[in-house]
Design a protein around this nucleic acid. Structure first.
Length: 403
RNA sequence: GUGGGUGUAGCUCAGUCGGUUAGAGCAUCAGGUUGUGGUUCUGAGGGUCGCGAGUUCGAUUCUCGUCAUCCACCCCA
């Protein structure tokens, strides 16, 4: 039997209902915050991701679905959404318009990793990108929006915040951290030893307890911010507090992608396994310029749709529409006219097999239909149809014309 | 890429210290006198016990391999 690829699941039944409910809810909220829909290709030139996400990250290093297409182009299935939106932003010369632009998107992302709870090879993100606004108030706005989305979906969450500094303070901090880590190298775990070279900031959120002990004395980015970064971070915190938004500063919070600067945040939830980040994002003021656009400040986020699916409970849907059935096969043809008429306004199910009335009633209930309409020989003879309201438990025989 | 767990009916799982026709619950279908529903009763259908080798008189059970899946690590939404 041919099966779907590892880590690539079908979405059907309850999960597809949840999926579209999540997309619908998030889109609605984003629109209210002034975001408009953008759709970008699933396939992009490999160089785009190498330059934006960063070659040091594992996403680019070993998790991309990368191949040479028939025109000898080096291409990739997108592993994340921001790069494509930024590319589009620049390609459509929106960076030259000098206006603020805000986009939301949702769609499939691909990463070649070992699947586990909350992690798939094909997964879906909903994300937003706001261009042209450097004010920290936009960071706040976006955090409020995400909170709004989760509140609308009824998802309990915690907000974690950090600042990653900018071009001015981050490199200096990075150097001092590396120096500190080098001194502790022998006491750190194997992974952290490797991370000193590949991604030193990553050591900060190492899960090994002994590493965390050793790292507690290491320099923290938040103590090493430049004046403007520090002022923004302070303002961010105070405005959130002012608005009764609970958050915790996590000095070890880092982002997985290279392009982030200044504000970094993550929304986490309980009870969904070890991959508990349900949304992540932050500011990326240098990325547009880095991808050959005009310098444009930007801030954005993405949420993992599959990761929140278990946290969403859908209301049970009310019985709706009509169920049609016959007691004798030869009457089946007559059903279609009646059914088509009802389809103009509501959901209709036609059962093709002749069944007992009892069986039709059971079936109608199972289909979650409001009405069960049945044609038997009596009805055909008289030009009527038998109909029962399954909720009100009221039944009647009406003429087919007035039905 | 690394480590561990699990593969028996559509679903959730029993079971066989190796031995005749492999079980339950749920689901499905039929029936409980003529055309009345979510309860209940009776019955029926449905399994190459993941796949392939090996050991054995005999393997769903033991061994090895393989595939799939789950969980964790790395990494990340």
């Amino acid at each position: 039997m041919v099966q779907s690829l590892r880590g690539m699941n079908d979405l059907l039944g309850e999960s597809s209902d949840k999926f579209s409910y999540i997309v619908k809810t998030a889109s609605k909220v984003a629109e209210r915050y002034g975001y408009s829909y953008i759709e970008t290709p699933l396939l992009e030139e490999t160089a785009l991701f190498k330059r934006s996400v960063g070659e040091s990250s594992d996403i680019v290093g070993k998790e991309m679905y990368q191949f040479i297409d028939k025109g000898q182009n080096d291409v990739c299935l997108r592993p994340e959404g921001t790069a494509g939106v930024v590319r589009s932003f620049i390609q459509n010369k929106l960076d030259r318009k000098g206006e603020k632009q805000k986009f939301f998107y949702h769609g499939a992302m691909f990463r070649y990793e070992r699947p586990q709870k909350g992690r798939l090879r094909l997964f879906h993100q909903f994300g937003c990108e706001s261009f042209g606004e450097s004010s920290v108030f936009e960071d706040i706005s976006i955090i409020l929006m995400i909170k709004d989305i989760f509140d609308n979906l009824g998802i309990k969450h915690k907000i974690k915040l950090n600042s990653l500094g900018c071009n001015e303070c981050m490199p200096k901090y990075r150097e001092s951290l590396i120096e500190d880590l080098e001194n502790k190298r022998d006491e750190l775990c194997e992974d952290c030893g490797r991370r000193i070279a590949t991604n030193p900031i990553r050591t900060l959120d190492c899960k090994v307890e002994s590493c965390q002990d050793k790292l507690s004395s290491s320099p923290k980015i938040t103590d090493n911010l430049c004046e403007s970064c520090d002022a923004d971070f302070e303002q961010l915190k105070s405005i959130l507090t002012q608005n009764d938004i609970k958050f915790e500063v996590d000095k070890h919070l880092v982002r997985g992608l290279d392009y982030y600067s200044k504000t970094a945040f993550e929304f986490v939830a309980d009870g969904i396994g070890s991959q508990n980040a349900i949304a992540g994002g932050g500011r990326y003021d240098r990325l547009v310029e880095f991808l050959d656009g005009r310098e444009t400040p930007a801030v954005g986020f993405a949420l993992g749709i599959e990761r929140i699916m278990d946290l969403v409970t859908l209301e049970e849907s009310e019985p709706e529409g009509y169920y049609f059935g016959v007691l004798d096969e030869e009457n089946l043809g007559e059903l279609f006219n009646l059914a088509s008429r009802k389809r103009g306004s509501t959901k209709v199910h036609i059962e093709y097999k002749k069944r007992s009335l009892k069986s039709h009633l059971k079936n109608a209930l199972k289909m979650n239909s409001r009405y069960c309409a049945v044609l038997g020989s009596e009805e055909v003879k008289n030009g009527t149809i038998w109909i029962k309201d399954l909720q009100a438990k009221f039944e009647d025989v009406v003429s087919q014309e007035s039905f």
